[in-house]
């Protein structure tokens, strides 16, 4: 542990500020609470908002997992883990079930989250209405008045144009029947995991200086229309080439030699755990 730094990098004043904002965020699910985001020794856009939440929460007994697009081993995930463990001495893990704090970019893990865990999602663009309303003052007003016809219109235009809701990641959700919220760029596949989640979910946007929350057991509904219901990405009839899993989020890959398409778990630690489970039975 490097003692030249404060515990968890931050000074106590910075922690207090984001802690006050976080408690307010939990009390008003889906509402973006402004906070005085600090400079972080990692590149912008690589999760400074999530990192600040992690640093404000973490204590000596925590076990930290960091994933970037499903991978524990990506450069960003490794850098964030290193910064946090160098300044706190806390243990890190790849196993979702062992972690008390999970910081993630672009995914909610496949292993269902539990009561004693907190999921921290990194958010590049926290404002779901920004797509059609550039002014912060206006979007705040729209949220205040629960005036979301623009959000529905945006989805409707996509349906008209493409015949379906091609939102890809970051499909907007309605939280506690009140706030339209950007779930961060998770695939639509992960949206339903936010609904009535056992774990607290905190979302942090560093550049935009916002923190927001989905408390446990809170209603989260993906926006859709009766005629065009919300549909997560489907991997029907497909399985992971490595561990054989179905019903998980799969990456589509192409074997360059044979030009064949195959699939692999996007959540690499889940894939490895599944592999280790089936190995004793001699199944591959």
């Amino acid at each position: 542990m490097n003692t030249a730094y404060n515990f968890a990098f931050f000074d106590e004043g910075s922690k207090r500020e984001i802690r006050r904002a976080t408690l307010k965020a939990i009390a008003i699910p889906g509402y973006q609470v402004p906070f005085a985001s600090r400079e972080m020794p990692i590149g912008r856009g690589w999760g400074t908002g999530g990192l600040q939440l992690t640093l404000s929460l973490i204590g000596k007994n925590d076990v930290l997992k960091v994933i970037d697009q499903g991978s524990d081993e990506s450069v960003n995930a490794v850098n964030i883990k290193k910064l946090v463990s160098d300044t706190t001495g806390v243990a890190t893990t790849d196993h979702t079930a062992e972690a008390s704090l999970i910081q993630s970019r672009h995914r909610i893990p496949e292993v269902p989250l539990k009561k004693d865990q907190i999921l921290i999602l990194q958010v590049p663009l926290p404002e779901p209405l920004r797509y059609y309303e550039p002014s912060e003052n206006e979007t705040k007003k729209l949220h205040g008045e629960k005036e979301y016809s623009g959000a529905w219109l945006m989805l409707f235009e996509q349906i008209m144009k493409y015949g379906s809701m091609t939102t890809g990641a970051d499909h907007p959700v309605m939280v506690h029947d009140r706030y339209v919220m950007a779930p961060s760029p998770i695939p639509r596949f992960d949206n339903p995991k936010m609904n009535e989640s056992e774990a607290l979910i905190l979302l942090g946007a560093g550049r935009e200086k916002k923190v927001y929350a989905v408390p446990p057991y809170t209603k989260v509904v993906s926006l859709d229309f009766e005629d065009y219901p919300f549909e997560p990405e489907s991997f029907e009839d497909k399985h992971c080439r490595l561990c054989g899993s179905t019903g998980v989020f799969l990456d589509e890959l192409v074997d360059e030699a044979t030009d064949e398409t195959f699939y692999q778990c996007n959540d690499t630690s889940y894939c490895i755990e599944t592999l280790n489970e089936v190995e004793p039975f001699g199944v591959k």
């Binding site: 404060n6 515990f7 968890a8 106590e12 922690k15 802690r19 976080t22 408690l23 939990i26 009390a27 404000s56 929460l57 973490i58 204590g59 000596k60 907190i118 607290l200 929350a213 408390p215 446990p216």
Partner: peptide
């Protein structure tokens, strides 16, 4: 300990506010 004990207090506030 204003760092570690207050971190524990904060986490309890988070736990009780979110549940």
């Amino acid at each position: 300990d204003i760092v570690h004990d207050l971190q524990s207090v904060y986490r309890k506030l988070v736990d009780s506010t979110s549940r």
